[in-house]
Design a protein around this nucleic acid. Structure first.
Lengths: 153, 153
DNA sequence: ACAGGCGAGTTCGAATTTGAACAACGCCGT
DNA sequence: ACGGCGTTGTTCAAATTCGAACTCGCCTGT
């Protein structure tokens, strides 16, 4: 193996600032959702995806892939949401093995109730702290990362 | 309460790309550390901080604050590292209540062993995917976020 | 039609995380 | 010196997370 290409000052600054920011942002967002909406962030993300999917719902694997989470973790979270009546599980029409998750009216309502506080917190810990130039720069950089990482899976 | 200031397209793009990227990046980094170094990312972060602190070590609370983690979580992780001989806990000279954590030679060695693979993965999932301009833009934006969020803590 | 390989979801056990409660101590004003 | 309050670090129970193993159904080649 080749010698390690250590991070130079700029690279290290990028990594450490990224690390700190993500920890801070997620801590804040998770606290807000738990305290004000009674939802964990993973649960909120599930509801958002299912809401966007409409009446057809989504297969468990599609959901896990798009949320970048483990299959077992998703099974657990969907189970929790199902217990609370925010989500239903149904058979998949085209695949006997498949499970289709759908959001319920109660789930949509929970989302409607949670969204304002959530958005406000997202603003206060990230969006509103950046000017327009920084905002598009972040989007640009993160999109680059996502595009590359989607490829080799 | 005022009407919610919903996110416009650019703002939403920033948030969703940030969300996806952080999930992907952390998933990759954690997998690398677990598989190749037998360390969790939180543990690696503890070792890094203690390594940087030198022989004086760090108080538990200082450590928790700088890692942006909960006190109880840190107690657990330091306990794990202590079991494995990578860290020691000692009384704090200036405060009877205090506990000072220090990295051991074995801990430094574990860090030396883990670092190359870790850095390589950090490069491959983030640093090397950005050009110099994007790199500084990310640092700039994340530093803004950190500076603001450190204030009202 | 059938075997082998692959994919879908769940289950399982172990490890981890969190906030709240707790015991002990420092610090400040009186 | 002392009472009261904020801190420090740990403990606790409960919830969550992960990967590996597993079951069962799809699908391709022969």
């Amino acid at each position: 193996m080749a010698n390690t290409r250590w991070l130079d000052d700029d690279e290290m600054a990028a990594w450490t600032s990224f690390l700190e920011a993500t920890h801070r942002v997620f801590r804040e967002v998770e606290a807000q959702l738990r305290d004000e909406a009674g939802l964990s962030h993973p649960q909120y993300e599930v509801l958002i995806k299912l809401h966007g999917a409409g009446a057809d719902g989504l297969r468990m694997t599609e959901l896990a892939t798009s949320l970048i989470t483990s299959k077992s973790g998703l099974t657990y979270q969907v189970g929790q949401l199902e217990k609370r009546g925010l989500v239903t599980r149904g058979a998949c029409p085209t695949d006997t093995r498949g499970v289709t998750a759908r959001i319920t009216p109660a789930g949509s309502e929970a989302l409607r109730a949670a969204a304002p506080g959530h958005v406000e917190r997202v603003r206060s810990v990230l969006i509103d702290l950046l000017d327009r130039e920084q905002l598009t720069a972040v989007t640009d950089a993160m999109t680059s990362v996502n595009t590359r990482l989607r490829e080799d899976g």
